[in-house]
C-alpha cells in the first residue's frame, strides 16, 4: 500500500476530529442549547399562550420603550459615527489618538458605571439635579435617561466600523471629486457615502442589536417602573424575579428573535451583495 504523506498544513485526522468536536460542543452547549431552551420555554404552553403573554400591557409597553430607545439612539449614533469617522480619517489634528480612545470609552467602561455617571449628573443629588427638578424635567427614572444610557453604550459601533474602512480608502476619490467641481455635500452624498454604505449598515445593525439588548446601564437609570420605564431586557428580569417564568421566557424569546433577525439581515445582505462588497475591497 502506498504511504500517504501529510501536507505541511494538514493535521492528523484524530486532531482534526478532536478540534472539530470541541468547537461543535462549545457552540452547542453555550450558544445553541440556551437559545433552544428559551424558545422551548416560551412556547411550552403553545403559541396561544405565547401571544397572550406578549399582549400583556406591561410587556407591550416594554417592547414599545425598547423600540423608542433604539429608534432614537441608533440614528443619532449613526450621524455621530459618520461625523467622527469623517473627521478622524480625513483630517489631521492634534489630539486625534485621544479622540479615538474617547470613542472607545463606552466599550471599556462597565455599563453599570455608565449608568451611574448619569445618576451623578442628573440625579437628585447630582450636578443638574436641582435645576432639573425646579423646571420639572425628568431625566432619571424616565424615558430620556434610558435613551441617554442607550446612546452612551452604543456610541462606538458605527464609528468603530467606519474608521478603518475610511482610513483604508483615503481621500483620493474626495480630492478627485473636488477638482471636478463637486461641493462638499455632493462629494459626501455621491462619493463618500456609496463607498462606506456597507460598513455603515453593519455598524447600524450591530448598534441596533446592542441598543435593544442593553441591560446594565439602562437598569441603573430606569428605576424599573412596570409599564413605564422597563425596557425588554429589564422586563425579562422583573418577570423572572416574580416567578413568572413563561412571561420571562416569552419576552426573552422575542429579544432573541430580534437578534436572529439582525443576524439574518446581515447574512442576507452579505450574500445578496457579495460581488459589490468584493468590488469595493478591490482597488
Amino acid at each position: 500500500m502506498k504511504k500517504r504523506f501529510l501536507k505541511p498544513t494538514e493535521d492528523p485526522l484524530w486532531l482534526r476530529l478532536f478540534l472539530g468536536a470541541v468547537a461543535i460542543a462549545f457552540i452547542a452547549i453555550l450558544l445553541l442549547l440556551p437559545l433552544a431552551l428559551v424558545f422551548k420555554e416560551a412556547f411550552a404552553n403553545g403559541i396561544g399562550a405565547f401571544w397572550i403573554a406578549i399582549k400583556e400591557p406591561d410587556t407591550l409597553a416594554s417592547v414599545r420603550l425598547s423600540l423608542i430607545a433604539a429608534g432614537i439612539a441608533v440614528p443619532l449614533n449613526m450621524v455621530f459615527g459618520i461625523a467622527a469617522a469623517w473627521c478622524i480619517t480625513k483630517y489631521d489634528f492634534p489630539g486625534k489618538t485621544f479622540l479615538v480612545t474617547l470613542i472607545d470609552l463606552p466599550f471599556s467602561v462597565s455599563p453599570v458605571v455608565a449608568g451611574l455617571i448619569y445618576v451623578l449628573v442628573f440625579g437628585a443629588q447630582g450636578w443638574f439635579g436641582r435645576s432639573l427638578a425646579d423646571n420639572n424635567i425628568h431625566i432619571l427614572f424616565a424615558v430620556p435617561g434610558i435613551v441617554l444610557a442607550t446612546i452612551f453604550v452604543t456610541f462606538p459601533f458605527v464609528a468603530r466600523e467606519l474608521i478603518p474602512l475610511m482610513a483604508d480608502q483615503g481621500c483620493d476619490e474626495e480630492e478627485a471629486a473636488a477638482t471636478l467641481g463637486a461641493t462638499g455635500l455632493q462629494t459626501f452624498l455621491r462619493v463618500t457615502l456609496p463607498n462606506i454604505k456597507w460598513g455603515l449598515l453593519y455598524g447600524v445593525l450591530l448598534c441596533n442589536a446592542r441598543a435593544l439588548g442593553e441591560f446594565g446601564a439602562v437598569s441603573v437609570v430606569s428605576g424599573h417602573i412596570r409599564g413605564v420605564t422597563n425596557t425588554m431586557p429589564l422586563h425579562v428580569q422583573l418577570l423572572y424575579d416574580n416567578y413568572d417564568y413563561p412571561g420571562a421566557f416569552t419576552v426573552a424569546a422575542l429579544l432573541a428573535m430580534l437578534a436572529l433577525l439582525t443576524l439574518a439581515l446581515k447574512s442576507l445582505l452579505e450574500w445578496r451583495y457579495a460581488d459589490e462588497l468584493a468590488a469595493a475591497h478591490r482597488h
Binding site: 483620493d172 476619490e173 469595493a280
Partner: peptide, 8 residues
C-alpha cells in the same frame, strides 16, 4: 497616479 476613479 492611482487613478482615484469612483469605484462604485
Amino acid at each position: 497616479q492611482q487613478y482615484a476613479l469612483f469605484k462604485h
